[in-house]
């Protein structure tokens, strides 16, 4: 293989007490690509991302980031290694200003020195945030909050960014805009994993797709080589 792997997940099992949420999940993401993970509600997509970012500990299995094992490491150890999650529900800090939210993105010590530089890059990518600079984050619209969440994640200068349901509850025109920015981010060489319920849009953006059902990966391949029929059957488990 000529291109190196950004992320390699092997045989991942996750339990919540007695309930098994992930079954033997394996997945590979090549550097510089956009990979899409789709599946219905409760299929284990968010659990997968939360485990990669370190919020959850895998019961079994390994996670490698650019060849380095990161499974079991908490977020404050995975973030400096170059992976950042844009979480479901955005989780911006409502009572901090837009600027302060971005500052928190550069919390890890090595990022702090380049803070102002990365902030101006973030404002370039999302000019609307520059206009809202001093506003409390909870005064932003849904779309702006999502942009802030992505920009905040970018502040940690990740090599791999994990996006969980970033189009949820947003108007199509805003979703389109956000996906355009994601394309720009990807062009800078940042690898992206997209988790979506919006199948069409994420398949269009991705070069590789995985379909999850009840905690298992049931289909994988290049979006161009997958038929709509295949995806639908895998998605609904027919």
């Amino acid at each position: 293989m000529s291109e190196s792997l950004a992320l390699k997940v092997r045989d991942l099992d996750i339990f919540y007490k007695d309930f098994q949420a992930l079954w033997n999940v394996s997945l590979e993401v090549r550097e510089g690509k956009i990979v899409s993970v789709i599946g219905a509600n409760g299929s284990g997509k968010s659990t997968l991302l939360n485990t990669i970012s370190g919020l959850l500990d895998p019961t079994r299995g390994t996670i490698e980031l650019f060849g380095e094992r990161i499974d079991g490491l908490p977020p404050h150890e995975t973030v400096p290694r170059g992976v950042t999650l844009v979480p479901e529900g955005r989780r911006i800090f409502p009572r901090l200003t837009v600027y302060e939210n971005l500052v928190m993105g550069s919390y890890t010590p090595r990022r702090r020195s380049k803070r102002e530089e990365t902030i101006s890059k973030a404002y370039e990518l999302f000019p609307v945030l520059n206009e809202r600079h001093d506003q409390m984050a909870d005064t932003l619209s849904g779309g702006e909050q999502q942009m802030l969440a992505i920009a905040r994640a970018m502040m940690s200068e990740p090599k791999l960014i994990l996006c969980d349901e970033i189009s949820l509850g947003l108007a199509p025109v805003i979703i389109k805009d956000i996906y355009k920015r994601l394309g720009q981010i990807n062009q800078e060489g940042i690898t992206i994993v997209l988790v979506e319920q919006d199948v069409k849009r994420s398949l269009k953006a991705a070069s590789q797709a995985y379909v999850m059902l009840e905690g298992k990966i049931v289909l994988e391949g290049q979006p161009s080589s997958l038929t709509e029929e295949q995806v639908k059957n895998a998605y609904f488990g027919i």
Binding site: S53, L55, P74, P75, H76, V79, P80, T84, L85, P87, R91, I92, F93, P94, R95, L96, E100, N101, V103, M104, G105, Y107, T108, R112, R152, S156
Partner: peptide, 23 residues
């Protein structure tokens, strides 16, 4: 300050703060 803001961030959204690499 970084720590002061991180304290506020953690009180706003604990998981969000952890995801930013805040212990």
């Amino acid at each position: 300050t970084y720590i002061g803001r991180a304290i506020r961030a953690a009180s706003d959204d604990e998981i969000g703060a952890r995801l930013m690499g805040i212990n």
